[in-house]
């Protein structure tokens, strides 16, 4: 006899109430990151130099700006999912774990927002 309620079985979201969402998003972001990260590395290493003018001109191209925004957002999301699991696995004290998860989530949101802001600022031509 199963102790699970019929409703719980129908919803199929398990004890964490999130179902396979974490697993699925981690897969989606990793699939997206295969081409995005390869594009980023190749594109970055193809720059003739890392002088400000060269980098700013590169970031000002529409295609670069668009792909960079995607790369930073998807990368930050994937990173958040990964670091979260590491914290859940290795930080055992409940209070410290929750605190660490809050800090990790906020830090990733900040990094993602800062990255997108910086890319758009350069791409929209207001970098001094």
């Amino acid at each position: 006899m199963s102790l699970r309620s019929p409703l719980g079985r129908v919803l199929g979201t398990g004890s964490a109430k999130e179902g396979v969402r974490h697993w699925w998003v981690q897969r989606l972001t990793s699939i997206a990151l295969v081409p995005l990260s390869i594009w980023f590395v190749v594109s970055l290493l193809s720059l003739p130099s890392f002088d400000h003018a060269i980098v700013a001109a590169w970031m000002s191209q529409s295609r670069t700006a668009l792909l960079l925004v995607l790369f930073v957002l998807v990368g930050a999301w994937h990173s958040q999912l990964g670091v979260r699991v590491v914290v859940e696995d290795y930080v055992h004290a409940t209070g410290l774990r929750t605190l660490t998860l809050v800090v990790v989530t906020f830090a990733h949101a900040l990094v993602a927002a800062a990255g997108v802001f910086a890319i758009l600022k350069v791409a929209c031509g207001s970098a001094a």
Binding site: H52, V55, A56, M59, L68, V72, G75, A76, S79, G82, V83, V86, V111, A114, G115, F117, A118, I119, K121, V122, A127, A128
Partner: peptide
């Protein structure tokens, strides 16, 4: 994966520096 998370941090710092202008970038 953890090292790459640090890399993301460095990347965004670098992007912010580009957006902050030439002297900040230097």
């Amino acid at each position: 994966g953890l090292v790459l998370s640090l890399g993301l941090l460095a990347l965004v710092y670098w992007l912010m520096a580009v957006a902050s202008g030439t002297s900040a970038y230097t």
